[in-house]
């Protein structure tokens, strides 16, 4: 464990807590993409298949349970909570995410560390996480008003992967055997997607204008 990875995990945790806070405090999920939340639930479930077989540390196990639990709770809330579900932008959240699922799965069948069920699903979850934010970015662009909690959610989500890139650089420099190419390349693609969002988010913040993401 290094400071970059700890900072990344904490930032990731904050992004989930911000989202839970927004939904519980405002009893609304306007501006939040259910599709991105469902993709994240799939990411965590397929990535943590080793939850009960490999014990890394108490921290690792607790964080896995928190991420799986919170992502499923958010999806449940947005789908079934009688008050929250009414504020879901159903007609705006129309990203065809089956494409993301299909491409990630095919890529995982081709590119993985070992051809075992657990490793293929692990690679699938890494590729899927890189693109899981797309429905949310499209929804932000369409809904125009960057509800500040939704914007902050995306901000922390992007910052967490940026910290992980520093972590991979640190591990590459300090460990003789670096085998995290799948995570590293996928993480770079993911952060590049956020960098784009951050640029337009910063511009809109500076001009105090509405967020205008390019079509």
């Amino acid at each position: 464990m290094n400071i970059f990875r700890l900072a990344g995990d904490m930032t990731h945790l904050i992004s989930v807590l911000v989202l839970l806070l927004k939904i519980y405090a405002t009893k609304s999920c306007s501006g939040i993409s259910l599709k991105t939340q469902e993709l994240y639930a799939i990411v965590f479930v397929t990535r943590y298949l080793d939850l009960f077989t490999d014990f890394i540390s108490l921290y690792n196990t607790v964080m896995k349970l928190v991420f799986i639990g919170s992502s499923l709770a958010i999806v449940w809330c947005m789908r079934y909570h009688r008050v929250v579900r009414r504020s879901y932008d159903r007609e705006l959240d129309t990203f065809r995410y089956w494409i993301l699922l299909g491409v990630s799965f095919i890529l995982a069948l081709v590119l993985h560390e070992k051809f075992t069920l657990q490793e293929v699903f692990w690679a699938f979850s890494i590729y899927l996480e890189a693109v899981a934010i797309l429905p949310q970015l499209v929804l932000l662009q369409r809904s125009g008003n960057v509800d500040n909690l939704a914007g902050q959610y995306v901000f922390f989500l992007g910052a967490y992967r940026a910290f992980y890139i520093l972590n991979w650089i640190y591990r590459y420099l300090t460990e003789q055997r670096f085998t995290r190419w799948i995570s590293c390349v996928s993480g770079l693609v993911q952060t590049a997607l956020y960098a784009d969002f951050f640029y337009y988010y910063f511009i809109s913040w500076k001009n105090n204008a509405k967020l205008q993401l390019p079509a």
């Binding site: 995990d9 990535r47 890394i56 690792n60 692990w122 055997r177």
Partner: peptide, 10 residues
């Protein structure tokens, strides 16, 4: 070794 194969990152 075992620990190198398992994914210790979240």
């Amino acid at each position: 070794s075992k620990d190198e194969d398992t994914h210790d990152e979240l």
